[in-house]
């Protein structure tokens, strides 16, 4: 008997005016597993993330996290805080999501103070553990964001998100803006955290190589609709839907030649 999913989404829909941003999305996410939501601009993938954390209200459908419905706005501060504890998010741009006047240690401490009943010494210990987990040293965790590099800031943003001890972490293009060598560091850190804490990830991404590296299952979205859903390895090795095939064929690799995919090829010029 499989355990209940940590996050269950059913028939999720969102409209902005006449525009349907997300249409009839359903998936289950189990403990310690990772799901990718893949798509291009306008696919609705970020709207999905925003609905799950409660930044957008779904037009229809249900979102159940840790056994509790969160499809409607929270009633009261306690409920809102509990939702914040259960599901956290890390955005693409760590410059925009950190307070420039707050050091990492102060930032993490504040989250711990708001969400848990720890004394100052315990909070200090947990802050140190989180810094270790994401690979920031003593000097870095006490530095202001402007004195950190992009990769260090993104690791701080992850530490901040982990401070609530969430069951689900949403990574909204969180490694997209990082340099190649730093992206690999952060992806390894994310894999370690999953192994250590049994946390589940939702990875919102357009980068199929990152999706392959980090996730077990994937949902491919196009213009708000799900076009394919399955195990990541199978989906990338043997894509069924023409759109998934086109996405897969657009990834540069050995022997790859760019093709004018959206239009018929021009006649060869001689």
């Amino acid at each position: 008997m499989p355990e209940d999913p940590i996050l269950a989404v059913r028939g999720l829909r969102k409209q902005f005016g006449a525009h349907v941003a997300v249409d009839d999305l359903s998936f289950d996410l189990h403990r310690g597993r990772s799901l990718a939501v893949v798509g291009e601009s306008g696919s609705g993938k970020t709207t999905v993330a925003r609905m799950i954390v409660g930044l957008e209200r779904p037009a229809a459908g249900t979102i159940v996290a840790c056994g509790r419905d969160r499809s409607r706005p929270a009633r009261g501060g306690a409920e809102r805080k509990r939702r914040g504890r259960e599901v956290q998010i890390v955005f693409q741009d760590p410059y925009a999501s950190l307070d420039p006047r707050q050091s990492g240690a102060v930032l993490v401490d504040e989250v711990l103070r708001v969400h848990h009943d720890h004394d100052a010494a315990t909070r200090r210990r947990i802050t140190g553990e989180l810094a270790d987990l994401v690979g920031l040293d003593q000097r870095q965790i006490n530095a202001l964001p402007r004195d950190l590099s992009g990769g260090q800031r993104q690791r701080l943003a992850i530490a901040r998100a982990l401070a609530t001890d969430p069951r689900v972490l949403i990574l909204d293009e969180s490694v997209a803006a990082l340099d190649v060598s730093i992206q690999a560091q952060v992806l390894n850190v994310l894999a370690d955290i999953r192994d250590e804490r049994g946390i589940s990830y939702i990875l919102i991404s357009h980068d199929l190589a990152v999706v392959r590296q980090l996730t077990d299952d994937a949902v491919v979205m196009r213009k708000g609709a799900v076009v394919e859903h399955g195990p990541t390895g199978r989906l990338l090795d043997d894509p069924q839907h023409p759109y998934t095939r086109m996405l897969r064929a657009s990834v540069p690799g050995p022997g790859w030649k760019p093709a004018r995919t959206l239009r018929p090829a021009a006649p060869p010029s001689s």
Binding site: S181, Q185, L187, N188, L208, V210, R212, Q213, D237
Partner: peptide
């Protein structure tokens, strides 16, 4: 760089 054709146990950061 991660690969789109295979999952590495660990990336060579």
């Amino acid at each position: 760089r991660p690969s789109v054709t295979a999952t590495a146990p660990r990336l060579n950061a």
